[in-house]
Write a protein that binds this DNA or RNA. Structure first.
Lengths: 206, 206
DNA sequence: TCTATCATGTAACCAGTTACATGATTTT
DNA sequence: AAAATCATGTAACTGGTTACATGATAGA
């Protein structure tokens, strides 16, 4: 399983997380993810989706639960999450959330953070906060010493942008950590699905 | 050439830009880029570097300029930039700099922006500023309507982070655009190489 | 002298992208 | 009825990563 978690790509994880909402066939995943604008986080194309699904299947994280057919359209295979797949979702998020990298992985982990208990998320994000602060300090040190050694300003623009973005992220994280302490802040998966949610599912199912 | 520019990866572009400083063999590129901490921007491994160099060669963007040998160490091939390769650097930066995506490509384009004239960079970054503002507006609209339709707050965390980072980037860009208007802000490649620069080159050459 | 690490590179594998295929439905 | 688009998927290509190879030097 360690291996599974390591090899999981952002799209792979989002597919697993999606299957926690119910069994689906790949085309439905594509539509639902596009409806929700998950393509902000990962590129979604037919090729990538089918490719990803077949790797998840081979890894035993999902399983076929039958083939249906709608009118005379091509058959389509519906997939379900295995127990292993379900475990892997939490483990992946747990691993990505505290890391300092500002990567596609982190954005996905944050978007899927509600798959973990709220207190664990708070702890993981605190770790990330510390890691980002360390990165910031190191980068600022490098910038200062480059400046002192006479590196011209036009070569330092990118570092300065990086510092600005890092600062904003840290400030944002501080805000979130505070909000998460408030018991009024909602968490987890709502027990009664909203209208909007149901409408989305239906639209995607067709 | 259009095609060349499109297919160029961030590492490929950085290799081309590096070769504007002089002919080099791949291992030297690896060392020099690591010294300069370019591995903040792109992953640098042996495999990736040699792979990239061989693709640049095949595309005619670089050429072999001889094989040397140091003592009994393995032979090594030195590469030089072709005219086509040199053109492609500017064209790639010109294309990436105004885009709204906050991708590895943009960071590399910014780090290599000094390969273009300062006024062109100002114009390109202004375009990006506008594109980011548009993205921000759209994202904020999506967030508001999701909120109004009752999407619980724990599902909106990632969007909020995205908005915070976008805001910081726009503010940073405004600062840069202002600085670039000041004729005292330095630009271009310094004519007399600094000590630090020479020391780096030497250390990387070995 | 044995072992570790450096210098330099090759090759196989793996994930993502692009292009295409095929029949069904909808639009003109 | 022709053209466009949708639904569903396959296959080939391309770029990046990992693992390995080989001789040279340096340190214990």
């Amino acid at each position: 399983m360690t291996d599974d978690v390591d090899r999981l790509t952002p799209l792979g994880l989002m597919v697993l997380a999606l299957l926690r909402e119910g069994d689906m066939h790949p085309y439905e995943m594509i539509r639902l993810m596009r409806l929700r604008r998950d393509d902000r986080l990962v590129a979604i194309t037919n090729g990538t989706m089918y490719h990803t699904v077949s790797r998840l299947l081979k890894a035993g994280l999902i399983a076929e639960v039958g083939v249906d057919r709608d009118g005379n359209r091509p058959e389509r295979t519906t997939y379900t999450l295995t127990d292993a797949g379900s475990d892997v979702v939490a483990e992946w998020v747990r691993r990505q959330l505290p890391r300092a990298e500002r990567s596609p992985e982190f954005r996905v982990a944050l978007a899927e953070a509600h798959n973990l208990p709220r207190d664990e998320v708070r702890a993981l994000l605190s770790q990330r906060r510390a890691a980002l602060a360390a990165t910031h300090a190191e980068l600022a040190g490098g910038h200062r010493s480059a400046h002192e050694q006479g590196v011209p300003a036009q070569f330092l623009l990118e570092v300065e942008r990086d510092l600005a973005v890092l600062t904003a992220e840290i400030a944002w994280l501080d805000g979130v950590l505070e909000r998460l302490e408030d018991p009024a802040f909602p968490w987890g998966v709502p027990t009664t699905p909203s209208e909007r949610y149901l409408a989305q599912r239906k639209a995607a199912r067709q």
